[in-house]
Every structure is written in structure tokens, then in C-alpha cells.
Amino acid sequence: MKASTSVAITAVVLVAGFALCALQFPNIASTRVVANLLTDNAFLGIVAAGMTFVIISGGIDLSVGSVIGFTTVFTALAVERWGIPPFAAFALVLVLCALFGAAMGAVIHVFELPPFIVTLAGMFLARGVSFLLSTESIPITAPIYSAVSDFAIKLPGGGRLTAIAIAMLVILVLCALLLHLTRFGANVYALGGSRAATALMGIPVGPMTIRIYMLSSVLAGLAGIVFSFYTAAGYSLSAVGVELDTIAAVVIGGTLLTGGQGSVIGTFLGVLIQGMIQTYINFDGTLSSWWTKIATGVLLFVFIALQQGLMALARRSSLKPAGTRPVAAKPAGAPT
């Protein structure tokens, strides 16, 4: 299938890139670096999983960066100033995120507005609220935070698989199961294929839209909590622009920006590619860290061009009268 082709290409790019990095800096090929890469990008992986659902369904969610920022500030305030126990604070903030996402989904469905505009409004709203809560960075000193930071599974070769890295991996696996193995997941793909046809086939399009944006916001909230563990602080300016990194990771992972195609594993590979570029630049030491953005931009462009090319190829092959014979007809180029 075409989808698996894009994922395969992403995987090849990742492996080849990693091999090149390792040739120049042999130290990169160690469990320590790889485990750090997972820890550093844990929040990005989680939020990108949610974005994968949204983009496959034919939408987009620009609010996720702001939701992360809001979550860190809210959690820090709740734990440090209001004296709410950390786990209660997590539950509370996730409920708020769920309501926020559901509201965006409802607005998109009921008023038939483009997701771009609605989630753009959501982005300003969430960022504004976090500034209202506090404009300064609030350090979190609760004991659970230091306990979680200290926890790690030791890997051979000196790497430490941290709690937040494990959290990301678990969430990604759960999301992959949800997307690929359930009716909900099938409906997400259906929405991305054609909203009108999905509705005609009796799928409740409205509730689906609401649930998808709810999922995305809850995952952004989880990413925010993970981010607060990562930085041990809450700051209203955290994760500015992360929505764009997220979209880039999803698209590089082979998900079609127009919807209908994509996978969680692809998104994970996309996140790793971004992390790898960052790691390379850190190792080099002389390059400005902004080169990450430039490299990501170039990659993004290449991948989108590649997707278009693959689509054009698929369109051409679908013009062949494949499967018109009543018996033993095989589709063109479908190895599944």
C-alpha cells in the first residue's frame, strides 16, 4: 500500500541519517544518546500522536503548543500555590483540556468552520489564559517530580530510559492500537477520505469530530504534564511553535496533510528524525541550533514533494482497468 511506502521511506531516511551521523561522530551510536533523544522528545511524540489522528481525519490542530503551555502553568500553580495534590492536579488539567478540545470539535462541526481557523482561535485563547494565570516561570518542587526524574531503566551501554520516555512509548503504542485496530480508528480514516461519503454511510460525523479534537487536546495536556516533568517548572511561554514542529513530524512520518492516510509509527519516526537532526547539531557544536529548523524545513519540503509524486503514480496506475474481470482479478500494485 501507498501508506506503508511512505513509512518505509521515512524509516530509510532515519536509518541512513543515523548511519551518517554515526560515521562522523561514532559516539552517537550509543544507548545513552538514543535514550536522551527519547527523553528530550517525549512531549513532542505524545502531542504528535494526537495530531496524527487529527490530520488523518482531514483536519488540523494549531492549538496544541498553547495547550502544552497552559498545562505546565496550570499544573505548577495547582501544585505549588493552590496546594492541590499532583495527581489530582493532573486529572483536573486533563479534564479541562478534554473540554477545550471537545468545544473546538463541536464548533468545527456545528458551524462548519475550517479547523484551521477554529484551532487558531483556540491557540490564542489557550496561550492568553496561561499568560493570565502567570507570566513568570514557576518552579515545581513537589516530591513526586524529583522521584519521577530519578526513576529510569538502566540500559546496557550506560543509557537511561527515563519515566517520561517510557510514558511516550506506552502512549504511542496505545494510540497505534486505537488508530489501527478499532472502529474509531477506521472512522478517522473514513472522515479523511470523504466527510460526505462517511456521513452517507451512517457514521455519526459530529461526535467523531468532537472526539478527535478531544483526543488531540488531552494528548497535548499529557504532553504538557510530561513537559513539566522535563523542565520541573511551569511557564506560559513554553512550547511556543510546537504545533508546527508537531505537524512537521506527522507529515515527515508519511501522513497525508489532506487526510485519509497515515500511521502512528510513521509519526514516531518523524519525531525521531527531528530529534536526530537536533542531536547532530549538538554534537557538531559549531552550528547554530537554528539549523535544526532549516533542516526540518528542507526535509518537510522533500517529503511533501515525495508524497505528491507517489500520489500521482498511484493515480496513474489506478487508471488501468484493474479488477474488471469477474474472477481472479488482482488490483494494481497492492501487495497486502
Binding site: 500500500m1 501507498k2 479488477g323 469477474p326 474472477v327 481472479a328 482479478a329 488482482k330 488490483p331 497492492a334 497486502t336
Partner: peptide, 9 residues
């Protein structure tokens, strides 16, 4: 009367 691979898109 259709004998096709139903897993294909």
C-alpha cells in the same frame, strides 16, 4: 461474482 483481494484499497 467478484473474486478480489478485499484488503486492497
Amino acid at each position: 461474482g467478484l473474486d478480489i483481494d478485499v484488503g486492497a484499497p
